[in-house]
Amino acid sequence: MNTMIFRDMSYGVYVTTSLDGDRPVGCITNSIMQITSDPATIAVSVNHDNYTNSCIAKTGKFAFSILSENSDPSLIGTFGFQSSREADKFKDVDMEMAAGLPVIKDSCGYVVCRVIDTMETQTHTVFLGEVIEAESYGKSDNAMTYAYYHKVVRGKAPKNAPTYLPEVDGKDTPSTEEKKTGKWVCQVCGYVYEGDELPADFKCPVCGQGADKFKKVE
C-alpha cells in the first residue's frame, strides 16, 4: 500500500482551540471539513493524546482559526509540537475571544462551533459541531494547505496528526529528496536549514528551537 497518495488529498492547516476552565488551549489540526450548509456543521478530528481533545469534550465547544501562507510559521511549532498540559501556548500570541473561545488573529479568520455529536476511532475523536459564529479578517492571503506546509515551509507532521506518515515524518528529513551536505534538520519539527554552517544562534522558524536541536544530514 502506497500511503504517500494521502499527501495528494486536500487539507488545510488550522489552530483548533477550546478552554480549560478559563485557560485558553489549542492544537494544530488539519482534518477539518464542512459537513452541511444549513445548518452549517463542521467536523474536526483531534487525537486522544491532545489535551485539547478532553477540553472540547468538557466545554462542548471548539473554534478553529484558518492559518494563511503568511501566518507566522512559529504558530505551527507552538500549537503543533507542544502540549497545553504544560505550556501556555497563547503567551505572546495575538488572539481575541469569539463567542467565548480563543481565536488566532494572525489568520484568515475563524469559526466557532457547538459540539452536537462525536465519533470515536482508535486514536482520534471526530467532533461534529454546529457553527455559532464565523468571521473573516478580510486578508487577501491564501489559506495554508498541508501541501504548502510540507513543500514550502518544509515541516513534518506531528505524531498526533491524522496525516502522520511514519515512513516520511518519522525520518530525519521531511521529503524524499536526495540528501546533500550542508543540510541541518530540526529534530522537533523537521524544518531543513541549508547552508555551509548552522549559526550558533539560529532559531527554527517553525518551532522556535535553538541550534542544539538540529542534526546535520551527512
Rank of each mutant, 00 (worst) to 15 (best):
D94F: 07
K171Q: 14
I104H: 04
E167H: 14
V168Q: 13
L101R: 06
V93A: 02
K91Y: 15
F90K: 02
K171N: 10
Y149T: 00
A99P: 08
K180A: 14
A99D: 15
P158G: 12
T173W: 07
V115S: 07
S84D: 04
L165N: 12
I104F: 11
K179Q: 14
Y149I: 03
E130C: 08
P166L: 13
V111I: 14
V93N: 02
V152G: 04
N160M: 11
E130G: 07
R154G: 01
A98L: 07
T118S: 15
K179Y: 12
D94S: 12
D88I: 06
K91Q: 12
V126N: 11
F90D: 02
E96K: 15
G100D: 13
R154L: 01
P162D: 01
T173N: 06
K105T: 08
A147I: 08
D117S: 07
Y148I: 10
K91D: 12
T176N: 08
K151T: 08
S107M: 07
T145S: 10
E133T: 00
T145H: 06
H150F: 09
E96G: 12
P102A: 12
G109L: 06
E177S: 02
A134C: 04
K156A: 12
K180Q: 10
P102T: 08
E167F: 08
S84F: 06
R85C: 02
T145Y: 06
S83C: 07
D88K: 05
F90P: 02
I116K: 15
M144P: 02
Y137C: 01
S136K: 09
T173G: 05
A147S: 14
D141C: 09
S136V: 00
G100W: 14
K105E: 06
D141F: 13
C113G: 04
Y149S: 06
D169G: 00
S84G: 13
S175Y: 09
F90G: 03
N160K: 07
C108R: 13
E86A: 03
V115I: 09
Y146H: 11
Y137K: 04
V93H: 03
K89L: 06
V112M: 04
P174C: 05
V112Y: 09
A98R: 11
E177R: 03
M97A: 10
T125A: 00
Q122I: 08
Y148S: 07
I132A: 10
V93S: 02
M144F: 06
S84E: 03
Y137G: 01
Y148P: 11
A98D: 09
G155D: 12
L165R: 10
P166Y: 13
A147D: 14
G138P: 11
T121H: 15
E177V: 02
K105D: 03
M119W: 03
I116S: 15
P158I: 11
Q122H: 08
E167C: 00
M95Q: 03
Y164I: 04
H124E: 02
Y149F: 13
S84H: 01
N142M: 03
T123M: 13
K159G: 08
V168L: 15
Y149M: 05
A143W: 00
H150M: 13
Y146F: 14
G109S: 04
H124A: 01
D172K: 09
D92G: 04
E130K: 12
K139V: 11
